[in-house]
Design a protein around this nucleic acid. Structure first.
Lengths: 154, 154
DNA sequence: TGGTATAACATGGTATTTTATGGGAATCAA
DNA sequence: TTGATTCCCATAAAATACCATGTTATACCA
């Protein structure tokens, strides 16, 4: 049993006409230790798909319950937005998932998908959009060094 | 046995003349692990039906008993409305439930129903009303960033 | 180090299962 | 009996699991 569970690296795989795409084997190895499926949803801020293990959403559900009132509009809106958009995906025997039309359209993915590790979660981009996004991030970092403290402090 | 029990995704199913509608298979799988039935009631604030496992109402009842200050008298009244309105629904062998006239009218549902996952519970909308509601939420999120932080911070 | 054998992986195609949904029979209540 | 409700069966469509093959990466040996 491994100690760490981080999605790493950037991998490009093909997407076929049915929307099927192989989850990178590294990712699969991680997922298989804890579950049989992943959860994907449209990023709220960028044209990409986000994926994670269901545990992460479970934790989010608990956090929302604890920080907002049961009857509040905030809780209502948040849960609709997050859980209404998220969907479970299981792999077939060869390790592929079939992404939905909604997700593919949001990420503008047609024939290939870029998997980008983000630690506890990962993102799926179209090649075109990922090139732009990576440039944007690197430009931003040059101008303004990130504060490591922010990331550590969580 | 799974670890998590979240209602996810947004699914549209048809409602026939008898008020029958298929519960999405994902939802059914969750329900079957813990129970044989779900509980539905009219939303207090929006024109939709809310559904959940009886456990959630059980928890709500307990929370109200244990919190003297947390829930105001008004909120207590609201819970009375919920318990008084809630009703159990079982599915037939093909996985359908038959919604009552009262619920269908409240949600203005005629021939199709939109199931929206909300984590521990879910909602059932008419297509027309759901489109409006989703727009409202996304507009609000655009203007109100703090909600986003909650999501990203985990 | 270089070359080969082996295993793992990605990917295309096909078969099987599951699911949604319409129609009708059986059950129950009034 | 009539009307309503629940249950069961049939079918079409969609989702998913399985099989086969070429390719890439890895392990092994000289």
């Amino acid at each position: 049993m491994r100690k760490t569970f981080l999605f790493l690296d950037t991998i490009i795989n093909k997407v076929d006409a049915k929307g099927r795409v192989s989850l990178p084997s590294d990712y699969r190895a991680i997922v298989k230790e804890l579950s049989t499926e992943i959860v994907c949803y449209r990023s709220l801020t960028t044209p990409c798909i986000e994926g994670c293990l269901e545990d992460l959403l479970e934790k989010l559900a608990t956090d929302i319950e604890n920080s907002t009132d049961f009857f509040s509009e905030t809780q209502d809106d948040l849960t609709n937005l997050i859980f209404g958009d998220a969907k479970r995906f299981t792999f077939d025997s060869t390790g592929r998932i079939t992404l939905s039309e909604k997700l593919l359209q949001h990420a503008e993915i047609t024939d290939s998908a870029v998997f980008v590790g983000k630690g506890r979660k990962f993102q799926i981009w179209s090649e075109k959009n990922w090139i732009k996004e990576e440039q944007r991030i690197r430009e931003k970092i040059k101008l303004n060094r990130p504060s490591l403290k922010t990331e550590e402090g969580k």
